[in-house]
Computed example of a mutant assay.
Amino acid sequence: MWCIPAEGDAHFVCQMESVLEVYKRPLDPLNPVVCMDETTVQCIKEVRAPIAARPGETERYDVEYERNGVAHLLLFYAPFENWRRIQVADNHAACEWAEGVRRLVEEDYSNANKITLVMDNLNTHSGASFYKAFTPEHARRLLNKLEFVYTPKHGSWLNMAECEFSVLSRQCLARRLSDSEKVANEITVWTRSRNQNTAPVDWRFSTEDARIKLKRLYPNLLS
């Protein structure tokens, strides 16, 4: 469900239009657009062995289970290229995020001139995290290859990585997975299949649409 702010929110519309302007750029392999988001998955261990599926009956689980920690997911998603990578970690610390972005810059898009990274304004999503994880020289090299574009508060629906997480939850994570290793294995298979068998996103909501459909969010200059 979309969460839209109150009327006349200049900060919201400024950030929203910044994201929408990024989405309408021509596809450029040397200047890719990547959406990034994070979430957690509760790992669940079975207390009793499930009853295997039989003809006419699905697999059945006992109502009891054992919590077994959480797996933290970092998703990097290039919607206009139909590419995604999901990093499974034990935490969501600044250094974990920094390492994920380092891989994006130095491995996934090593030939890019500049990567535009669309994400929410979490405190770890900043250049400071690079300086916590790497030498100053390394941190600065990474920052020189990046453009950060932040979604506004209450504007997570503008981040296409959130939509991708929704698909992942329905297709891959809507069952009990016992530990982080199991989560990572399942996600690896899902990611490989989705990278090969789906199409790039056809994003149609534009700045012009926003100024009409979300007009109430813009400050009223006549009042």
Results as ranks from 00 to 15, higher is better:
residue 27 L to T: 06
residue 27 L to D: 07
residue 29 P to V: 02
residue 29 P to T: 03
residue 29 P to G: 04
residue 29 P to A: 08
residue 30 L to W: 15
residue 32 P to C: 11
residue 33 V to D: 00
residue 33 V to E: 02
residue 34 V to C: 09
residue 34 V to H: 05
residue 34 V to R: 04
residue 35 C to P: 02
residue 35 C to D: 09
residue 35 C to F: 13
residue 35 C to G: 14
residue 39 T to L: 02
residue 39 T to G: 09
residue 40 T to M: 06
residue 41 V to G: 02
residue 42 Q to M: 14
residue 46 E to I: 05
residue 46 E to M: 15
residue 48 R to E: 08
residue 49 A to D: 06
residue 51 I to R: 11
residue 53 A to Y: 05
residue 53 A to L: 09
residue 54 R to H: 12
residue 55 P to E: 08
residue 55 P to F: 06
residue 56 G to W: 10
residue 57 E to N: 14
residue 58 T to E: 09
residue 58 T to R: 11
residue 61 Y to C: 12
residue 62 D to F: 11
residue 63 V to Y: 13
residue 67 R to D: 07
residue 67 R to Y: 06
residue 67 R to N: 14
residue 68 N to I: 09
residue 68 N to C: 08
residue 68 N to V: 05
residue 69 G to Q: 07
residue 70 V to F: 07
residue 71 A to E: 01
residue 73 L to P: 00
residue 73 L to T: 07
residue 73 L to E: 06
residue 74 L to Q: 06
residue 74 L to C: 02
residue 75 L to T: 00
residue 75 L to E: 04
residue 75 L to W: 01
residue 75 L to Q: 02
residue 76 F to E: 03
residue 76 F to H: 03
residue 76 F to S: 00
residue 77 Y to E: 00
residue 80 F to K: 01
residue 80 F to T: 04
residue 80 F to Q: 03
residue 81 E to H: 12
residue 81 E to S: 13
residue 81 E to G: 04
residue 82 N to A: 12
residue 82 N to W: 01
residue 82 N to H: 10
residue 83 W to M: 10
residue 83 W to L: 14
residue 84 R to E: 09
residue 86 I to N: 00
residue 86 I to A: 00
residue 87 Q to N: 08
residue 87 Q to D: 15
residue 88 V to P: 00
residue 88 V to Q: 00
residue 89 A to K: 06
residue 89 A to M: 08
residue 90 D to K: 13
residue 90 D to V: 10
residue 91 N to Q: 10
residue 91 N to R: 09
residue 92 H to M: 11
residue 94 A to F: 04
residue 96 E to I: 04
residue 96 E to W: 07
residue 97 W to M: 06
residue 97 W to K: 05
residue 97 W to H: 08
residue 97 W to N: 05
residue 98 A to G: 04
residue 98 A to T: 02
residue 98 A to R: 00
residue 99 E to Y: 12
residue 100 G to T: 03
residue 100 G to C: 10
residue 101 V to E: 00
residue 101 V to C: 08
residue 101 V to L: 07
residue 102 R to P: 02
residue 102 R to G: 07
residue 103 R to K: 09
residue 103 R to F: 10
residue 104 L to D: 00
residue 107 E to T: 13
residue 110 S to C: 13
residue 110 S to Y: 10
residue 111 N to H: 11
residue 111 N to A: 15
residue 112 A to R: 04
residue 113 N to A: 11
residue 114 K to P: 00
residue 117 L to Y: 02
residue 118 V to D: 04
residue 120 D to K: 09
residue 122 L to G: 00
residue 123 N to R: 13
residue 124 T to I: 15
residue 127 G to H: 07
residue 127 G to I: 04
residue 128 A to C: 11
residue 128 A to R: 13
residue 128 A to M: 15
residue 128 A to D: 14
residue 129 S to H: 03
residue 130 F to K: 02
residue 130 F to L: 03
residue 131 Y to Q: 14
residue 131 Y to G: 08
residue 132 K to Q: 15
residue 133 A to C: 11
residue 134 F to D: 12
residue 136 P to I: 15
residue 137 E to V: 08
residue 137 E to C: 05
residue 137 E to R: 05
residue 137 E to W: 15
residue 138 H to Y: 10
residue 138 H to R: 11
residue 139 A to N: 04
residue 139 A to E: 05
residue 139 A to I: 02
residue 142 L to A: 02
